[in-house]
Design a protein around this nucleic acid. Structure first.
Lengths: 337, 337
DNA sequence: TTGAAAGCGTTACCAA
DNA sequence: TTGGTAACGCTTTCAA
């Protein structure tokens, strides 16, 4: 039923090797032959079997993405561009989510000979050794937000959350705020949450009297969605500690937190200024529109692919740190009390 | 470097065929032999090469999902359960988004011998013939929301949007509303938007005086996100036509629409009642919490996999229509003017 | 209960 | 420029 390369060869009156040469763009085939072969291909609606091809080439032209959280539009926007870039180089991309079986993903990446994997899941979700194991088994790895990764073995891309948090704090301080809360959604002892580190650094550096008493962290299992932002804000309010500004780990959390404030009649930004991270599109449509440390998601996605690509093709690991920019919305304003 | 089945066979002192029999759970191998083989497997850290295996079995144990829109949390919730169900049967699932190259996805599904594909993209995004072409090439297809699909060739799962829309309208009418708008995000002439059909049916049946003048549809390219809801609401307001209730194609759109109302000082639900579809988690955290026709996303996802699974294993197409339930939130209330 | 060997659809090397 | 053919790692008869 399905035409194979042998069928094409027979119809075109050439050998299978010649068909391969034509299809794989070798330039040492006479033009007339090329035409005959292509005609046969058309006529039989033949397409090369990628599985069989992979058998011999040891490449699959397939890249996996392990996604922390498909729900967060941030990842959606990043991955869209990643995939675009990958498609341009003829890679087929598949997103894997469903963190219940992260280990089994890794096994699949190996046994299915993925050329590369972009692991955009926080390191606590899996054993870091697994990354190196993938590499040993021939699967190139790009990791994200993994400050402790061995950069000689895996490529890495991260957002400069440390600087971004400093910028966020500076901005709020410039508006007169002193009691600034940070709602993390993660544990404060997780070393790779650079926002947390940056926050504590700035509190100390600026001599803010609140110390770390306005840092709301979370216990395992962590979550960083709308509901988590809401929950963290509630916990902050329950401490009864005064605050006039609030930074959230991402935009989704910021939206959840704003909702909690609103429910208690606390106005944004009149009573409390709120900031997020990421700069998801929805933030601009929020009421009030969200001030955020924004990531250029298209650039991030494309850079990510390029890093992984050069790892695959040139066997070169690479590192990229992405800068965030302050986007001012209506959710922040001068201190009023 | 990587151990093959030959290595295992040699180490265990058996033939490769025996290794296969052991690994694939054939019961006709002596227990002592099984143990010897398993030890060799362990020792060599051997795992079967799925690519090579697929060469002979013609199966890949791989399922693709074509997603309309990763941004919408609705799909995220559905796919999570789909993947869970698939993993239980040892299928590896990959999500493909990035609608820029839908056709090239289909090609990839064929040449990579995916066992099945769940096409959760609206039919206008691709040529319907492509679905049948996949089937001819041995890739089983489950389509969603495609009322015109040939059910003898592809399996299908859909939400009962027709009934759901009727329920939504009845509910609003029971609250006293008469001028009820529908914000679609799609074109009114797209036959598979059963919400639209249901809306127009009910308008006629109930004899609502607004006729179809409060139906806001959109031109290609359609979009159904937060921004689209906002835009549709703005267009509705610009018509100057009076309305006291509004149904949106999904929850995300409802949120965007509410934002547009709010910007103009229109209160929800005091001035206008708002409803959505889907029942995404975020809706409960909204202010006011969203009244919606809710889909049981876990059931939907699991049923979807089961349909595709039985298509793959038994070569049987199937059809399932999923009921929606009314979830009352704070965004709807009695007519007040 | 085990093994030998054919076959799956390609690629790539080497020879013609 | 072309073709013959071994090789890739596995499954699966068919014999032993």
């Amino acid at each position: 039923m399905k035409a194979t390369r042998t069928d094409v060869a027979r119809l075109a009156g050439v050998s299978t090797a010649t068909v391969s040469n034509v299809l794989n763009g070798s330039n040492k085939v006479k033009e007339a032959t090329v035409r005959r072969v292509m005609e046969a291909v058309q006529q039989l609606d033949y397409r090369p079997d990628m599985i069989a091809r992979s058998m011999t080439t040891k490449r699959t032209m397939q890249i996996g993405i392990v996604l922390e959280d498909v729900i967060n539009p941030y990842y959606g926007e990043v991955m869209r561009e990643f995939e675009l870039a990958a498609n341009e180089k003829n890679y087929f991309v598949n997103i894997c989510t469903g963190l219940h079986k992260l280990d089994s993903y890794f096994d699949n990446f190996i046994t299915r000979h993925m050329d590369g994997v972009f692991v955009a899941a926080l390191p606590y979700k899996f054993q870091e050794d697994k990354l190196y194991y993938l590499v040993e088994r021939g699967v190139k790895v790009l990791t994200s937000g993994n400050v402790n990764a061995d950069f000689r073995r895996v490529s890495s891309i991260e957002n400069d959350y440390l600087t971004a948090m400093q910028d966020a704090m500076s901005y709020l301080v410039s508006l007169g705020h002193e009691e600034i809360a940070y709602l993390s959604g993660l544990g404060r002892d997780l070393p790779y949450d650079l926002r947390c580190t940056g926050y504590l650094d700035m509190v100390r550096e600026l001599g803010l009297s609140c110390g770390d008493s306005l840092l709301i962290d979370s216990a395992y299992p962590y979550s960083t969605d709308f509901a988590a932002g809401h929950a963290c804000a509630v916990r902050l309010l329950e401490t009864g500690k005064p605050f006039t500004a609030m930074i959230c780990g991402n935009d989704l959390m910021a939206m959840g937190a704003m909702k909690a404030l609103l429910e208690r009649g606390i106005r944004v930004p009149e009573d409390v200024s709120v900031m997020g991270f990421d700069g998801i599109a929805m933030g601009q449509f929020w009421s009030p529109s969200l001030t955020t440390m924004s990531v250029d998601k298209a650039t991030f996605g494309r850079r990510a692919f390029e890093l992984l690509y050069s790892n695959i093709v040139n066997d070169t690991t690479g590192y990229y740190k992405n800068k965030l920019t302050l986007v001012k919305g209506q959710s922040t304003g001068p201190r009023t009390r």
